Amino acid sequence: MRPNRQQLIRSLFDEYIEMYSSRDNRLTHRFSENFSGYAGSSDLLVNNRKEWMRITRQDFAQVPERIHIEMLDLSLQDLADNLVVVTAFFHIHLPIPNPMLSRETARLVLIFRLEHKDWMIAHSGISIPYGLAHKGEIYPIAQLEERNVELESMIKARTCELAEANRQLEILSNTDSLTNIGNRRLFDMMLQTEWSRGQRSNSSLALIMLDIDHFKQFNDHYGHLAGDDCLKQLASTLSQSGRRAGELVARYGGEEFVILLPNIDKQTVLDTAQHIHQLIQAIAIPHADTDLGIVPVSAGVAYLQPSNQQNALELVRQADAALYRAKSAGRNCIRVMNEK
């Protein structure tokens, strides 16, 4: 092909693409009176200039913003002095939040004919494998919008399901699997949270630490399944013992339980510990290897004002030391930090 003819054909094509991409209505004046064409989004063959002008304006009205043509391949053919053909393969990037169209390859065939010294578009055939557009559309925008609504609904449903799954997972990760009360992980988190809150509000924080006395003997005598039932009954009693706002009942480990009580005075802590001890005595879980014939518990009570001079673990240390004194005093009793 002669270089000047190749340059001519390419310039005709580039001018067409620029006007089409920029949605320039002057493109409609470039169609030949003897025009034929088709759009791949419909199943109609157009064989007159007036109808194609209407379709082009409809196209521009449907998507008035500039579109981006990503060229993949181009073929220029010089068929005669007054007839040239361009075949192009490209991706169309529409200014809508959906990449589906841009992943498909479109094919465009343009025939330019020299008419009265002007090169006119005698044929335009574009194949767009996007499925049939709705009536009044060039691009299947309605189909995309319907798909987007469906996807948004699906995403919303999946997001809710994921949020609920995460919520359930969070509950499971903070729950003791045997007793269904808080576990050591939850206690550690709440202890730090309430310690910080106590520092900010200048309020107190108390901890009751409970331990089942002679639990090894209980397991040896009744078996580990009975031991599990004993832990469950004790956990249930603790969780129903009159929960205050912010109070946490948790299994600390093995046969040890903790009750965290924020913003409470010393006397109320002692009354709470005695009430819990009485409730456990009242359920009277049989234990033949004890003097009372029922499962006894020892309790240690600690009471502190959170401050920067000490950390939250000091509360645990004080409660554990009080529990140790209760054990040393003969078990089945309550001891308070710094008291004999």
Rank of each mutant, 00 (worst) to 15 (best):
S328L: 15
L207P: 04
S124V: 11
Y222C: 10
P3Q: 06
F215V: 01
L8K: 09
E15R: 08
H116I: 07
L186F: 10
R167P: 09
R184L: 06
L210I: 15
A106Q: 13
A163L: 13
N311K: 09
A80L: 04
G125F: 09
T179I: 11
I280H: 00
K340Q: 14
D271M: 10
D291T: 05
L144Q: 06
D176S: 01
R147T: 15
F218E: 03
I138W: 01
P286C: 05
L178H: 11
Q318G: 00
N174Y: 14
L270T: 11
M53R: 11
R49S: 12
T237D: 12
E152Q: 15
S41G: 15
Y324R: 09
H123F: 02
T87V: 13
N4A: 13
S236L: 12
S124I: 09
V46N: 02
L74T: 02
H287G: 03
H93M: 07
S196F: 01
Q77N: 02
H68G: 01
L231T: 01
I92Y: 04
I128P: 04
W195I: 06
A165P: 00
P97L: 11
Q199P: 01
T237G: 11
I67M: 11
L8D: 08
A321Q: 15
E170R: 11
Y130D: 07
A142L: 08
A322C: 10
N183H: 07
S298F: 08
L231S: 01
K232H: 12
T105L: 01
H93T: 09
T237Y: 12
L292I: 12
L74R: 10
S11F: 09
Y252G: 00
E15L: 05
F215R: 05
L114T: 05
Q233L: 15
L101T: 13
G242A: 01
H123W: 04
D289S: 15
A142E: 14
E70G: 11
Q143K: 15
N4G: 02
E256L: 01
G300T: 06
N25M: 00
Q6S: 08
A321G: 02
R243D: 00
M120G: 07
A326H: 00
H91D: 04
P95M: 06
I259T: 07
L94A: 06
L144D: 08
E194W: 03
T56N: 02
D213S: 10
N219S: 05
I141A: 06
R331M: 06
A122R: 11
Q192R: 03
D43V: 08
Q77G: 00
R200E: 03
S42M: 07
A282F: 09
A206Y: 06
Y222Q: 03
V84H: 02
F218Q: 07
G227Y: 04
M209P: 04
R107A: 14
H214R: 13
D271C: 10
A299Y: 03
A250N: 09
L205V: 02
P97H: 05
D59S: 12
G131A: 13
N338K: 03
P129G: 02
Y252L: 08
G330L: 03
Q278I: 10
A326W: 07
I208G: 07
Q310V: 12
R185C: 01
L151I: 15
P3F: 05
G136V: 03
D289M: 15
I155H: 05
G242I: 10
D43E: 13
V86L: 04
A299D: 06
D220N: 01
S75D: 14
I212K: 08
D118G: 04
G182T: 07
L234D: 01
N183L: 09
A235H: 08
G37R: 13
R197H: 08
